[in-house]
Design a protein around this nucleic acid. Structure first.
Lengths: 166, 166
DNA sequence: CTTATTTTTCAATAATTTTTGAAAACTCAG
DNA sequence: CTGAGTTTTCAAAAATTATTGAAAAATAAG
């Protein structure tokens, strides 16, 4: 297989994978392109390589920067901005967990909190409260487990886990 | 807050959450409805409660059964099928991890494998191989970590983790 | 300040995904 | 076997999400 073909395959697959992770296809493709580029690329480079519009490129690069998956790199004497990808995969995973925890788990916890005190003491209500209570407990445990995981080296347990995965 | 209002809020939020987890909105809403129902519901019940068509109900219930998040329950003397949700949240998470691992991580690993032997020994190709190699290593570690996690009680480490999260 | 270059915005359009609704297939009691 | 009840299928329609393209805003060199 040729290098170019390999790159293309990788960009496509990474795009597909990303689209299941809250990162849209183009966003993930940009990240993939930057991952396999030894040097920083300008928005223009990205636009040309992936055949997408400048507007699309700009929006997705900014989204990637919001997620902390891409950094801006200024080249002295250059007018344009250049971009590089976060290449440490464990960092990538942590950034994604952090974002999704904030956007998904935390709002869910707030909803569970707000509905955990519905009025009434009849069996149906009690049953509902029980389900919601269990869920709240599980969610808050997951929340702190993820906190530990992304805070890294914060305790012995995570240290062990890191050695397993890193 | 009234019980009905609480249920509705929960169904809506669970739907939103699910849609970020490879489970579409309706699919997750059906799961939510079954979660907070003390008894098994028929497809007809679900259709009416959620105001969706029979076709939609059927397709999503079957998808939920594929994922192992909902079970069919036959009531003696009843012609219709009834359904109940998997209520153990750790089971739910495990089922989701298992499905997504199969649908996302494993295909990615195959792609990485296939592109890890691009031809050439020039610096650009070597750099590419290095990135792909690192990714392959990380991904296969993640793969086996997730295997352990979902196989449960398979080793001491996971036992500790279970006590943390369960 | 002026101008060329680069970045950002956003309404319109395109692509994708979900839902419907109606017909077909299946199931089982009589 | 027949037929009422139930489930499944799938093409068309609706809803949602992503992309474009062109104009506006920002930036910096001269």
């Amino acid at each position: 297989m040729e290098l170019e073909e390999g790159k293309q395959k990788f960009i496509q697959s990474w795009g597909t994978l990303g689209s299941h992770w809250g990162i849209n296809r183009t966003m993930a493709q940009i990240h993939a392109l930057l991952l396999v580029s030894n040097e920083a690329l300008s928005a223009n480079n990205v636009m040309q390589e992936l055949n997408i519009s400048m507007g699309n490129t700009n929006m997705n690069i900014r989204a990637l920067m919001d997620w902390g998956l891409v950094y801006k790199e200024l080249k002295p004497g250059e007018r344009k901005d250049f971009y590089v990808a976060e290449k440490d995969m464990w960092e990538v995973v942590k950034k994604i967990i952090t974002q999704r925890k904030k956007k998904e788990l935390e709002p869910m916890l707030r909803v569970l909190e707000s509905i955990s005190n519905v009025e009434g003491t009849d069996p149906k209500t009690e049953e509902f409260k029980k389900v919601i209570g269990d869920l709240k407990l599980f969610s808050s445990k997951a929340d702190s487990a993820l906190d530990n995981l992304t805070k890294e080296d914060s305790n012995w347990f995570i240290g062990t886990f890191m050695r397993m995965i890193k």
